[in-house]
């Protein structure tokens, strides 16, 4: 069906569209799912970690507060790429370390090599690697989100909360219906920033050997030579990377529109300058 349509277009306009809809290209377009899934799943996790981090920062229990501060400070001094590579590897090794107690002999564990014995080695599938990549996105950008949420919690006018107390609302009601409800209006601009960062960071998935849009673009663009067909095309990588460049700008554009709408909704009836 698709093929006949494409051939018809090619016949009438002279544009060879069959090439950009061949199997490999369709696989490339399909690999966008990794990017989109990582962005949404990563963002959901980042929001969770952000809320936890912000709660830890505001906690009355000092060690928890220190942990919260450490968590939100770490992203300021160390690049996100480093964490992005570190977390999956560290998690993998932690699991292998736990495995090694049951799988390896004491002599092997004292040996000092890694992994202690082959039985303890954990072979990860692509899906598992991908999920870990999402988790590390969540951890890194959760730290950013924690900063934003912490700031936004502080930005809610105290008078609003005092007024709520004067009306006789309980602490729990004040927290959820006033503090958290109003917090979003202050947090959204910052969270929109974090989302943009996270979206752009999804391009790093290929560093963890995931066949995402970036890796496919590199493969498809490389000089294509078949013994039977000869040189199909030379080095076309720049064309594919320009497409990716435009694709990410488009994603940013769409996200911006959505966040504008959310911001208008969240600050409805509130005296917040935009």
């Amino acid at each position: 069906m698709l093929e006949t349509i494409l051939q018809a277009i090619t016949a009438t306009t002279g544009l060879d569209l069959t090439y950009i809809f061949n199997g490999k290209h369709l696989a490339w377009y399909a690999s966008v799912r990794y990017t989109i899934f990582a962005a949404f799943f990563g963002a959901a996790l980042a929001l969770c970690f952000g809320v936890i981090g912000a709660a830890a920062k505001r906690s009355g229990f000092a060690p928890l507060r220190w942990f919260g501060n450490l968590y939100t400070t770490m992203v300021r001094g160390i690049p996100d790429v480093l964490f992005f590579l570190f977390f999956p590897l560290a998690f993998e090794q932690l699991i292998e370390y736990l495995f090694s107690f049951s799988q390896c002999t004491a002599a092997e564990r004292a040996g000092g090599g890694w992994p202690p014995c082959t039985a303890a080695q954990w072979y990860l599938s692509t899906t598992e690697y991908f999920l870990m990549a999402c988790v590390s996105l969540g951890i890194v950008y959760g730290a950013f989100a924690a900063n934003v949420i912490h700031g936004a919690m502080g930005a809610v006018p105290r008078q609003q909360l005092e007024a709520a107390r004067a009306f006789g609302f309980s602490s729990r009601q004040i927290f959820w219906r006033f503090h958290v409800r109003q917090m979003w209006a202050y947090a959204l601009p910052g969270l929109s920033n974090v989302w943009m960062l996270l979206l752009k960071a999804t391009s790093l998935l290929s560093l963890l050997q995931i066949a995402d849009i970036v890796q496919w673009a590199g493969k498809l663009g490389a000089a294509n030579y078949f013994p039977r067909a000869g040189l199909v095309h030379g080095d076309w990588r720049w064309k594919y990377y320009v497409v990716l460049f435009l694709f990410y700008i488009l994603l940013t554009l769409i996200s911006e529109k959505i966040f504008d709408y959310l911001q208008r909704r969240a600050s409805k009836g509130m005296a917040i300058e935009r």
Binding site: S203, L204, V214, A217, R237, Y241, I249
Partner: peptide, 22 residues
């Protein structure tokens, strides 16, 4: 400004390198 802030640096590196190679 929009183009360079709206796209990942990672892609920008790949893009410029491959354009320079071309």
């Amino acid at each position: 400004i929009y183009a360079f802030r709206g796209s990942p640096l990672f892609i920008q590196f790949f893009m410029f390198y491959s354009i320079m190679l071309a």
